[in-house]
Nucleic acid binder design. Structure first.
Lengths: 401, 401
DNA sequence: AATAAATAAATCACTCTTATTTATTATTGA
DNA sequence: TCAATAATAAATAAGAGTGATTTATTTATT
């Protein structure tokens, strides 16, 4: 699969002009409200440093375009009551597709990030044909739930999918050929033929990171490191409050962080901290590994196997976090995944402990936190891709179209 | 020492306005010429996407201000001959100070990056008082070489200094107290009292990385990883063609990358790939380690000691590069340092070999290259700090002042 | 004649400054 | 206690200023 196909047009460094400036300031307003909740115009002016008049003009335009709406005036303070402006839930709609080990999931979210539609399909393993068909069908179904007016406001589809699917074959116990198909197919392009909104494709773990960045609860830090534990473990790197995907779109390939060497073979994080490893352990003792792919609430993994896995995984994560923190000096590390909440909590606790115990001079060890999104992070993150690209601050927004 | 004092004002996300736009486009023009050499206005317009008229206005202004100058018209093509515009060497001047293990070095460069003045001082170890006095004295001397007109165009001083100097004491065999002074002193502020140009302070290895970015020969890649081998080993991370220093200014603390664990103690890159290690090895065999601090051309380190050191150092570097590449997906890794050229070449060769041999799935291993600046990278990088801040593209340039 | 570089004049889009309006709370004086 | 007045803050209108763009023109060359 042409994984590069998601990458923005490489382009050299471009100049800036007035429309770029306006686009940037509009995104800034929307981003500030998304981060802080409803805010009056005067407050936006103070935060952004823009003049009150400029903010007034921009926000009235955004309101007229249906992206913002007035809240109840707040009285009780000296002066004219302030009118908080909030995101209008019908401002735009986004599709998010998660391609997973055992299932496909399509969600439809509104401008506030609320899931307003969901289609789910279980499969033995993902195939390009199956994914393309499911995508087109489910988008059709979900569009039916929207009014004709709302349909015009669909701003895109994001796809969260593990990269290098063809490397799965062995782990999945499938014939090499079943996965080889992914190498050549460009499902993004195929799906794009059917729809006239933009389509984005990203590594599933990076997408999950995007969900945390856009929809995460609490204050989002400038720079953080994110791990998502799925069939494999992957992650994302957030710099300056935006997801850094690098030149090839594969930055934050955190599963490939080496955590030790035996001879010439590096042991990688993915070898110890992914559900594939846990599955193997369960199967080795004659257990039924399918429980892993049910919604995590209902997991019933033998306690001793789980304990060993958490022990190994947290050691690997601690080492990986230390390595990554040296490179990018992050404020904190976050762990989420397709895990029951109590397993995630224990994994975070042990990782934090092992990181604290590790003696490393010269860097500050970031605190380790639990993700705030949980199991649905990948689908939500997928849907956040078109949202980020169109409505959130982005350095490139300043440049010429 | 308040190492944070260099960090840019934290500030939230700011809006953009016309002066920001113009400032950005001016920097863009200067950056394009610095990267590509002399370019005619029409070519700048094509690369930047700005209209020919806009570029014409901007470049005439820059010429009038003395930052650009006309080259010889190029004939031989259809149409009016193109006039390549180049950086004017007298456009601005910058001071760069390197604080090192055994010496201080102050350089003065012109707008082209050519070193036009240099003052050097050997010391047993760096003290805040010594550094402040040397700085003020040497700036005074070097200013005498400039005309009164040129003196007005001094745009700043950059200081490249190892962070956490107080951790040196043990390695240097000095009393703890000698280095404790650094913890409290803010030499940047002290020096700033004497001069009315801006002063920047940065980790010495990150500064060296900046030299590569600004003055490096050949095409500079978007994203790369940089190691500078000095008394300690450190580095820098370049993202989107700019030096990423992170929230605390300590990103690219590449010396702290863990390369293995024994019990709870992590072995770090700095333990195997710094000259401090080599010095220890030399002293252990009764040799004279002072040769290391002479200009590297005249090194005469026993061959067997050097061979062992290069072997260990390259193994550590290979592992560190693999780890960092997983996090940030860099185009390549670069190694430079206070080293004789043949040692650097061998170190790079072995690192590349060991990285190739290392089996790691899921990432592309970056090629390893030699730095193009060499021993003077730190002082040049220091001088590049005010240059970057005032004259090169920088996302923040677009925002309101 | 064709082509390309460079520029001039007019236009357009945007933010900023200054001044005004509006709605509210705080203070004052009978 | 109550009404009149002052102070304050939000919001906006009008006009100024700045900078990129468009269109047209000039210039120098093959």
């Amino acid at each position: 699969m042409k994984e590069d196909s998601n990458t923005a047009p490489a382009s050299g460094i471009r100049g800036s002009n007035q429309s770029g400036m306006r686009a940037y300031n509009e995104r800034l307003v929307l981003s500030l409200i998304r981060q802080n909740g409803a805010l009056p115009k005067a407050e936006i002016a103070r935060i952004s440093g823009l003049s009150a008049q400029t903010v007034s003009v921009i926000m009235r335009a955004l309101e007229a375009d249906g992206f913002l709406e007035k809240g109840e005036p707040i009285r009780g303070k000296v002066g004219q009551p302030s009118v908080p402006m909030n995101l209008a839930k019908g401002g735009a709609f986004f599709f998010g597709l998660k391609v997973g080990r055992r299932s496909l999931e399509m969600i439809l979210i509104n401008f506030l990030g609320t899931v307003i539609g969901r289609v789910h399909l279980t499969h033995p393993y993902p195939t390009p044909d199956g994914v393309v068909r499911f995508t087109n069908d489910s988008i059709g179904q979900l569009l039916d739930q929207l009014t004709p007016e709302e349909r015009k406001r669909v701003a895109g589809l994001g796809i969260a999918i593990p990269f290098r699917l063809w490397d799965w074959s062995v782990a999945l116990g499938l014939e090499q050929t079943d996965m080889e198909a992914w190498r050549e197919r460009d499902i993004r392009a195929e799906i794009a033929q059917n729809w006239n909104f933009p389509i984005y494709l990203q590594n599933d773990a990076s997408a999950a990171c995007g969900a945390e960045l856009v929809f995460g609860k609490g204050e989002t830090p400038r720079d953080f490191l994110y791990f998502y534990i799925g069939f494999f473990v992957g992650g994302g790197v957030v710099l300056n409050r935006s997801l850094f995907t690098g030149r090839s779109g594969n930055a934050g390939a955190l599963g490939s962080i080496p955590i030790g060497v035996t001879g010439k073979k590096a042991r990688l994080l993915v070898d110890v901290a992914s559900l594939a490893t846990l599955e193997t352990a369960i199967i080795a003792t004659g257990g039924d590994a399918n429980i892993l792919w049910e919604p995590p609430k209902s997991w019933s993994v033998p306690a001793d196997i789980l304990r060993d896995w958490v022990d190994d995984a947290s050691s690997g994560l601690a080492f990986a976090i230390a390595a990554a923190a040296s490179v990018m000096d992050c404020e904190y590390a976050m762990i989420d995944g397709w895990l029951p909440e109590e397993v995630r909590a224990e994994l975070v606790r042990q990782t934090e402990q092992k990181l604290t115990d590790l003696e490393i001079a010269g860097i500050e060890k970031p605190p380790v936190l639990e993700g705030t999104i949980g199991t649905s992070a990948r689908a939500l993150g997928a849907a956040s891709l078109p949202l980020s690209d169109r409505f959130l601050v982005d350095q490139n927004a300043l440049l010429k179209a």
